[in-house]
Nucleic acid binder design. Structure first.
Length: 273
DNA sequence: AAAATCACCTGTCCGC
DNA sequence: TGCGGACAGGTGATTT
């Protein structure tokens, strides 16, 4: 699940719960989440330290340690954080468990092992090394338009490409395109200036509104697509039946009326059917 | 070279 | 009820 709004909420959660407590104990399992990092080394770096603040870039969350290092977490599809008191509250699939000096715990859980846990001295450098583009909430309209130059693939895959813009995933790409009234299969370089301007505005609107809704579909506005996913239902604007299809290999929902298909020359799909 | 597709894990859901 | 197969919101590697 965790796209930018989800990670922003996890950041708020961590800020309200997990800062300024000394880390007394660390449990980590070896495995694919810890790349180039052993559980023992991670433990050595974290134990005795406190988190002083956090930072988010795209879908990554960084915890600043009082020795100037940062713990970096990527959540993958199934990752989340849980701060709790009693040992029997440990969530299933906990992959990293911190125990603080106030007898509370912070667990990073991930059912599918698709996230990452690592350390860095500098989140900015980390973002560069991992080829992350600017955060989706940091973009000016001009930067947004400039980033779209010369791309011939689909607008949906462009929005989701973390090396271009960091933070947007499959679900919010669909939501943003729905509100911008742009079909997800459009070629990026066939969009008009005004379409790109609208897309930029909707990107900020949707992501910020999703954070307000605490990334909870039940709190999202009534005219949003996301809570309707996989329900085979109707467009909240025009009552057309919503379509489910595949764009760039990803499950895609859209409204065929509000988001009309591009003319054949304007598709960004290599193969169309 | 850019863009699409596959592979990575594991749990869930659906149809037979 | 049991079982196989498709599928899931992400990303990095591989292929086209």
């Amino acid at each position: 699940m965790p796209e930018l709004p989800d990670v922003a909420c996890l950041q708020q959660y961590a800020d309200s719960m997990a800062l300024h407590h000394r880390i007394d104990d660390v449990q980590a399992e070896a495995g694919p989440l810890l790349e180039n990092l052993s559980p023992g080394v991670l433990k050595d770096h974290l134990r005795g330290r406190t988190f002083t603040r956090t930072r988010r870039h795209g879908k990554y969350l960084f915890f600043h340690l009082d020795n100037e290092e940062w713990l970096c977490i990527r959540f993958g599809i199934t990752g989340y954080l849980d701060y709790y008191r009693h040992a029997d509250e440990i969530p299933p699939h906990t992959r990293l468990l911190l125990e603080f000096d106030n007898d509370h715990h912070l667990a990073y859980s991930s059912r599918r092992l698709m996230g990452a846990i690592t350390l860095t001295d500098d989140p900015g450098r980390f973002a560069d090394e991992h080829d992350l583009g600017p955060d989706a909430l940091s973009l000016s309209k001009d930067t947004f338009k400039a980033l779209a130059q010369d791309h011939t693939g689909t607008i949906k895959s462009w929005l989701m490409d973390q090396s271009i813009i960091a933070g947007i995933g499959n679900m919010y790409a669909d939501e943003i395109l729905f509100h911008a009234r742009i079909h997800p299969g459009y070629r990026v370089d066939r969009l008009t200036e005004s379409q790109l301007a609208g897309l930029h505005r909707k990107t900020g609107d949707v992501l910020n509104r999703a954070i307000e809704a605490r990334a909870d579909p039940d709190r999202m506005p009534a005219d949003w697509l996301l809570p309707l996913r996989s329900r085979n239902t109707f467009c909240p604007h025009c009552e057309s039946g919503l379509k489910k299809t595949t764009v760039s290999g990803r499950t895609t929902f859209y409204c065929p009326t509000c988001q009309p298909s591009p003319a054949s020359a304007d598709w960004g799909l290599r193969k169309q059917h």
